[in-house]
Amino acid sequence: MRRRIPLIITFVIGLVLITGYFVTRAPFNTLYESFSDYFAIITVFAFILGGGSLLKIHLKRVSSRATDWHYSVVTLVAFLVTLVIGLFKVGNPAGMGGEILAAGSWLRFMFDGVYNPLSATMFSLLAFFVASASYRAFRARTKEATILLSAALIILLGRTPVGAWMTAWMPESLAFLELPNLANWIMAWPNTAGQRAIMIGIALGVIATSLRIILGIERNYLGRGE
């Protein structure tokens, strides 16, 4: 019961969706359509599950006075305040019928004022990390590393006007060696070749794994049995 029913569900859903991709007749084609719809709805329930788990963890941390529990209070307050604002559309000029992010609503403020700068700054840390990673990792230690390093340098220079300026002296017959052209060529050909090999490999990996899931060979995700 605890394990067999889920395996049957997986098998049926998987098979129906695959069939629905190829077969144009009812009920398969309509099932395919409804499942993608249902799928989206279930993912919203997952948000609720996530919220519940978040509350549970942080409440526990506060009540047990774990290390840094003060910060859990920050999370809890931020979560509950934002949730109330969002679910009840606080400050929304058009009330409960209005668009959730309408100008003037408090949720919009949370988005523009808090979410947005935090998210963008966190993302911008990458500018620093990409520099430290390239400084440390781009060393011509092996043949492979040298190839990686060379391709990266050509692209780095080729994607700026500096690259064009550095190689502008080249004669017309060697125009293909100008850095921007070389960079474009690498992107268009060897890069495509590598990407494609990876993509085909991944596609096969996905096909095989999906098949194992549908057939119940891969069932770790269901956890323990009876």
């Binding site: 500018a127 520099a131 390239s134 440390r136 011509a140 990266a152 340098l153 220079l157 500096v162």
Partner: peptide, 16 residues
């Protein structure tokens, strides 16, 4: 963009 790209290239060369 331009300045940082050049800086990173210089850093990589220096590192090597």
């Amino acid at each position: 963009q331009v300045v940082t790209h050049v800086l990173i290239v210089l850093l990589v060369l220096l590192g090597n």
